[in-house]
Simulated assay, not measured.
Amino acid sequence: MDFDPLPDKPAPDNPSGKLVLLRHGETEWSRAGKHTGLTDVPLTPHGEELARNAGPLLSGYDFVLELCSPLERARRTAELAGLHPEIDPLLVEWDYGGYEGRTTKEIRKELGYNWTPFTHGVIRGENSPGETVEEVAGRASRVLTRVLPAMAEGDVAIVAHGHLLRILTSVFLRMAPRFGAALTLDAGSISVLAFYREEPAILTWNHGPGLPLKPSES
């Protein structure tokens, strides 16, 4: 295992704060189902609308820490949602290597089987080596070691990407990183994690601002 899971015990003082996850709004690539890792693709007008409409859903929280991926689609989502986060490079999306910009359908046709990144991984690309799911989980674990103490003081917001947030949630729940394959996360959606009776739990998952949206790959 290439990452250090969170300890199998409550976080310090069993923090009462909530961890609010906001996936960035729609991009042209996400709308087309293309795997969008480190490519800096901007939001579509619909993506910006999703981000604005996410803002009111965040208004009831008392954020003591706000973190965001450095990629433009996440930063713009945070801005439009009314957040003022600190940039954390660990929150970038999965490096898909040679599968960057390609759809699941295209990859499966080439390989001849029902490929998924969680089960089969990615290949090295010309410009990036790609990451294993365990490497992404390692980054997520490092983020959570900072987030959990802050949750003892109040709520925490993270604005990032579909696969990264699904894996981060798996680590938070003390599950294997590949558990993220069982979680869906639409563009512009909000999810809430917390401790319930001393155990990490999902309070709300994939809650959107009520606009029509086609699910996408990343």
Rank of each mutant, 00 (worst) to 15 (best):
D13R: 14
L90W: 11
R73K: 13
S30G: 11
H35L: 15
H24R: 07
E110T: 03
T145V: 13
L38D: 03
D4I: 04
D13L: 13
P85N: 10
P85E: 09
G130W: 04
A54F: 02
P7E: 07
P56M: 11
V41T: 14
P117D: 02
A74R: 01
S141T: 03
K9T: 03
M151P: 03
E79I: 01
L168N: 03
L65T: 00
L19P: 02
R108H: 02
R52P: 04
G125K: 12
R73Y: 09
P149G: 08
S59M: 11
E79A: 15
L148D: 06
R52N: 05
G47N: 06
E66V: 02
S69L: 06
L148G: 06
D2F: 12
H120S: 12
A182K: 12
Y96W: 10
P10E: 06
P10I: 01
V20L: 12
T39E: 06
R178H: 13
G125S: 11
L71N: 01
H24A: 09
R23T: 04
A194D: 00
I123P: 00
G97I: 05
P89D: 15
W205I: 02
P117T: 04
V171H: 08
R75E: 06
L213E: 15
R174K: 12
N14I: 12
R52E: 14
H207V: 09
T104M: 09
I107D: 05
H163L: 15
P212K: 08
L80W: 07
L91T: 07
T204L: 14
V171E: 01
P5A: 06
P209H: 06
G55W: 02
A187G: 10
F3R: 06
L165G: 00
G210Q: 13
G25K: 05
V133D: 00
D13H: 14
A11K: 01
S191M: 05
E49W: 10
L168Y: 03
G121C: 09
F172L: 03
R142E: 14
G162Y: 11
G180P: 04
M1A: 14
L80K: 04
S170I: 00
A201C: 14
L203H: 07
S170M: 05
G188Y: 02
A181F: 02
A140H: 02
D8W: 08
E28L: 15
S216H: 09
V133Y: 01
S170E: 03
L164E: 02
P15F: 13
K18I: 01
L211Q: 07
P215D: 07
P12R: 07
T36W: 03
T44E: 07
P5C: 01
F63E: 02
R31W: 07
R31L: 13
T132R: 08
V20D: 03
F63D: 05
N53R: 15
L83H: 06
P10Y: 09
E199L: 14
L91I: 13
E28K: 12
P149D: 07
V64H: 08
I107F: 09
T44Q: 04
T145D: 13
K214A: 12
A74K: 00
R174W: 03
R174I: 00
P149A: 12
I158F: 07
